[in-house]
């Protein structure tokens, strides 16, 4: 019988506890504010960690990891604003990336990155050892005349989805930018 009483006491306690919290609903909860847009054009340089420019990572990038970098798929695209004067002088595409040992070891020891912009192919670069690199290529003025340029990149060898984890994994990218030559 004592057990029954304790059950009842416990249930009543729960009800009282939660009942006193019923007022919570009536109170207006703390407003979750949004960050409204700052005036400004697209960025020429996109850091993976910058939430303001994440929208320019249009395809093939996974979520931010450790607040600094993102895995890419074998094909990825980024849209960048050509810096002032690049319609006349051209610009330089720079992608700061890491070739992970885990990838190289499983794809035969080397992989290559190539990009295109506005139908123009940029020279590929082959990576045969793991480490941090910058893929840097000149971009001709003819494809930098608009307010935005979309770079479509391909990695020749990568970890297929399911090979190591469920995601297709190619490179780790920290930053992609279009800078003055």
């Amino acid at each position: 019988m004592r057990v029954c009483k304790l059950w009842i006491v416990a249930l009543v306690a729960i009800e009282l506890l939660t009942g006193t919290l019923a007022g919570c609903k009536a109170k207006r909860r703390t407003r979750v504010e949004t960050v409204e847009e700052e005036a400004g054009p697209l960025a020429s340089v996109v850091k993976m960690s910058d939430p303001r420019t994440a929208v320019q990572l249009v395809r093939g990038f996974y979520g931010l990891e450790q607040g600094a970098w993102r895995w890419t798929k074998s094909e990825f695209s980024v849209t960048l604003r050509p810096p002032n004067g690049s319609a006349q002088a051209g610009a330089r595409l720079e992608i700061h990336l890491t070739v992970p040992e885990a990838v190289l070891a499983k794809v035969g020891g080397s992989t290559a990155l190539s990009c295109t912009v506005g139908g123009q192919a940029l020279e590929p670069k082959t990576y045969s050892k793991a480490g941090d690199f910058a893929y840097a290529r000149d971009v001709s003025p003819s494809v930098l005349t608009a307010d935005a340029a979309s770079f479509d990149c391909k990695v020749s060898k990568f970890l297929a989805a399911g090979q190591v984890e469920e995601r297709e994994l190619a490179l780790i990218v920290l930053e992609a930018g279009l800078v003055k030559k």
Binding site: E36, G40, A54, T79, S150
Partner: peptide, 15 residues
């Protein structure tokens, strides 16, 4: 949440 309408719009035009 961060509003990115303007930049998204600019990117969307190219894609």
């Amino acid at each position: 949440l961060r509003a990115v309408t303007r930049n998204y719009h600019a990117v969307a035009r190219t894609r």
